[in-house]
Amino acid sequence: MTDYTALRTTMVDTQVRPSDVTKYTVIEAMLNVPRESFVPRDRRGAAYVGEHLNLSADRIVMDPRVLAKMLDVLDIQKDELVLDVGSGLGYSAAVISRMAEAVIAVEDDEERAAEAQMALSEHGADNAVVHAGALTDGAAEHGPYDVIVIQGGVEFLPNSLNLQLKDGGRIVTLFVEGALGAVRIGYKIDGDINWRLVFNASAPVLPGFEKHHAFKL
């Protein structure tokens, strides 16, 4: 029988901590959330490898190191409301739920959203709600949000998400720029988002977050 608890501890000790992740809340959450319960059943054996896990052609469960570094820089507080865009089967939402007051997870596949909600409920994440709908639409009815996290690559950020972030709030996402992407944290000040580079990583571009290039002869 696979000892997932030991694998989880090894993941944190060999992948998360060495990646300059120092926030206790991030480490504690990743030590306690059973990642194997939030990945496809046929991929559970690979739940703790240090890479993205595919959900579909353009959807992933984020590499634990990348997710941990994103959450570390966000420094989510216990009184904050978080929007988790592209939560997949709910792993990121489960981790965030241990740090925030509440998290709204957005998933565009209704079957996947239902599975994520069930897994979150089974593991006691009562402050996490899964919203089924287009990822670019977010979940305005539950906002505005103190923090927005996007679980995948983007080529541009839709204004619909900007509008759901509180003034003074922060957002983290991975901008795909050629072969290598750049994870940036943005701070919303007077309606505009000011971006700062955090680290480099790569991920598939999420559906709806592609730039539409004009056709030229």
Rank of each mutant, 00 (worst) to 15 (best):
T136I: 14
E110F: 10
P34A: 02
K69C: 11
S87R: 00
L53V: 04
T22V: 13
S37A: 10
A68D: 04
A132L: 01
L217H: 12
S19N: 15
L157C: 10
H142W: 13
I150T: 11
G124Q: 06
L53Q: 03
N200M: 13
M70D: 01
V149F: 05
G86D: 09
S202W: 03
E36I: 07
Y91D: 00
D58T: 09
R59W: 05
V12H: 14
A214G: 12
E110M: 05
T2I: 14
T14M: 12
Q117H: 08
D109H: 12
D72C: 03
Y48I: 12
F156C: 11
R112M: 14
W195V: 10
A116R: 05
I104P: 02
L197A: 14
G124R: 01
V26R: 09
Q15K: 09
S92V: 00
L206T: 06
A46I: 07
D58H: 02
Q77V: 06
S92P: 06
E111I: 14
P34H: 06
H123I: 01
G208Y: 10
R112Y: 02
M99C: 04
E111V: 15
D72G: 07
H131P: 01
A113E: 08
E122C: 03
A132G: 04
E36Y: 03
V149Q: 00
I60C: 01
A105I: 02
A125I: 00
K188D: 10
V176C: 11
A203I: 02
G169M: 05
L31E: 10
M1E: 10
S19A: 15
V82L: 00
D137L: 07
L81G: 06
I27L: 12
D13R: 15
E28V: 08
T5G: 12
N32K: 06
T136K: 11
L83T: 07
L81R: 11
V85A: 04
Q117M: 06
R17H: 15
A182M: 15
S97D: 00
V130W: 02
